[in-house]
Design a binder for these strands. Sequence first.
DNA 1: TATGAATGAGGTTTCATTCAT
DNA 2: TATGAATGAAACCTCATTCAT
Lengths: 229, 229, 229, 229
Amino acid sequence: MLATGLFSNEARNLGKSARTRARLMDAAVELFARDGFKAASVNEIAKLAEMANGTFYVHFRDKREIVQAVTLGIAQELARQLDEAMVDIDDAVERVSMATRRFLDLALTSPDWGRAFFRAAWAFRDLRENMLSFLRADLERGRDQGAFTVEIDDVLIDTFASMIMGALFGRLAGDFGPEAGARVAELQLRMLGVPPQRAHAVANRQLPELRLTIAALPKQLKPDPVPSR
Amino acid sequence: MLATGLFSNEARNLGKSARTRARLMDAAVELFARDGFKAASVNEIAKLAEMANGTFYVHFRDKREIVQAVTLGIAQELARQLDEAMVDIDDAVERVSMATRRFLDLALTSPDWGRAFFRAAWAFRDLRENMLSFLRADLERGRDQGAFTVEIDDVLIDTFASMIMGALFGRLAGDFGPEAGARVAELQLRMLGVPPQRAHAVANRQLPELRLTIAALPKQLKPDPVPSR
Amino acid sequence: MLATGLFSNEARNLGKSARTRARLMDAAVELFARDGFKAASVNEIAKLAEMANGTFYVHFRDKREIVQAVTLGIAQELARQLDEAMVDIDDAVERVSMATRRFLDLALTSPDWGRAFFRAAWAFRDLRENMLSFLRADLERGRDQGAFTVEIDDVLIDTFASMIMGALFGRLAGDFGPEAGARVAELQLRMLGVPPQRAHAVANRQLPELRLTIAALPKQLKPDPVPSR
Amino acid sequence: MLATGLFSNEARNLGKSARTRARLMDAAVELFARDGFKAASVNEIAKLAEMANGTFYVHFRDKREIVQAVTLGIAQELARQLDEAMVDIDDAVERVSMATRRFLDLALTSPDWGRAFFRAAWAFRDLRENMLSFLRADLERGRDQGAFTVEIDDVLIDTFASMIMGALFGRLAGDFGPEAGARVAELQLRMLGVPPQRAHAVANRQLPELRLTIAALPKQLKPDPVPSR
DNA sequence: TATGAATGAGGTTTCATTCAT
DNA sequence: TATGAATGAAACCTCATTCAT
């Protein structure tokens, strides 16, 4: 019955409608990851979710809406889990390293989510800016703590994010193994001005096991006008 | 007559067939940049190139083929020009800074090319690896010259490339101005272990004016099996 | 709660089932008037009636049935009210003038009803013939009273009706004002052979105020085989 | 091969594209007549025209466009033929009688055209007003010649047209025979103030045989905002 | 080579209707 | 009675590709 996707899991205790909607979203994630937002067809989503194509439109006004729901759902869930994982950490150097490494772990927990997130990151400015604002806070914290010697500006933040996304891509493509997260975190810390030894030490510190929890549902998101799909 | 695109320019002294083909490629670049590879339609390409849709298939076996031709053509041309710009430089620190800054300048000379390149970079592994091999050479040179203290591995190279691509995206989206290239180059040098002052100095050194030349034509390219489209 | 339509009003003292049915019919009239029989959708009718779409099929076997019910209901109600308004009039000249003028007034009391009636008139032969039989009686009365010099045949009756429908259309479209009824009645009387002065006088006579009452419910109606939809 | 419709006939000496387009228009007329503009489907039109559904969109941007082309084509052709038939007649009484009778003859030459015209008349204000302007000219001529005693206003013209349309409907529905045209013309003349004997005489005068000729092609037309389909 | 009409599979979306609750 | 999720046929339209000229 395939009710195995993460959205279905989140919705397993909700009403029938919510569960059907979640099944569609799970199917959509899978196809978005494989084919992209544009190439994935509504009919195929419905077929993969094992329901009639008309059913799709009972739950989503149109294709745009499921793209938004899936995208936002993934972003929110990743952000929530990342936040949870970092709640106890105060040191900015640790936080920045943790953010990169944990984010990659989380996004790779379900490669479909990772792939869909990767696509969405280029397509939706809202989502991008939302993620970047968290990053900015930690980078500024590091500057204020005197740990980072580099100036914090938009280019830095964006570049920092690009390094993470590059690592995500490499891992999804199978080019890199699990150690890539630590490696990229180390490079980031070097870039920020953390002394090489400390950068290496912090970035390679053993992380506590990843404990996954499940949560809420999405709302809104509007696509970039320009460089999307 | 629109014979103004870069491919048409390259082909201006070739036979009629080559010139027709080039006009199609110029039209394709424009539409690929605006709509993506999937959404750009063959009919629209032919219309923009001011010829009958059937003519398209005289010059390309199918849509895949023009995507490859355009993509590879752009990559080769960018690589050629970049190479030319760097031919006299020996110092790896200078080379690496120059590569990032010049590449961005070149790719933004024609935003359509930049956009098409950006899309292609994620879609075609061959193209990616081709670009990365040049990078690797310069990074290893820097290590051998004792300028870079960081270990050179695949993750580093890929990360370095991601930083460039992130900057390209930001510039195409209008988020960054022309200074972004120098800024990213500086961040890269810091990451590689170049002392901050030198990194800043080299990355912000005045560049010789960009002199554009025109050249050769493409052949082959196969798309990634997995995370493309 | 919108229980304000004419059918709901008629059914206000009946059982709950009848009232629900009436609410659906009121919603249907509104949408039929706006969109036509074909374009009005069952889901939209139910939504406008503020109930679940499934409820529709508790009260009507299918869409055809509500079209018939609404159509016949409107026709019967218009005929009843027209009849009531004319019950005291004996002179055929007065009756014919009154029929045209009052019918237009009645049909325009609720533009939705007028529009729906207009559409139905071309679509349902039964309804048409039902209306025409009343007309025939008055025309024959006029002939027998010596007021009309024209021969009474099917073409005359139909033509007479067409003049009314044309006026209805013009008024619904906003092309004509309230005076159109008198004008058309005058033209009809001239056509029938009433002397112009008398035609003018009778057609422009002040009408007693329109007093609306409410009444019964529909049953049956079958669509024309040929030139409908 | 069905290349028998009137549009195909008109286009029989034109290029292949025009002939295909005409075949589609002939098929469309047939289906519009039977099912209405809304209910007739593009796929069915293509099927009836014996071509692939995609071919439809080679010749028409969308369904609206073929509705306009067919509608305007019919109206123009009917107007042209009617004009031709009346070119030698000066007497307004004769002209008015001729217009009604000949129009009905023409429209019934091809019942599909008649039916499509009937539908279009209610749906497209432009078309309606175009036809009415010809009518107005003849009615004013009659007034100026002293033949009509009635006042010429919008309601009169519209009513006059409604009488014709009513007769067309009756003939299409099979309710009336060929004599209906003369009968309606007589009623119209009576309405206008022509003395009954003259009205009868003129309306029943033998008409010269109908000689059909073929002609030009359509351009433009926009649908009514309000009371259409 | 070049043309452009023709094809038909497949995309998104709507909608009358059914059915389990 | 009432609900509303589910269905699947069918609507409009797009597009890569073929083919006769």
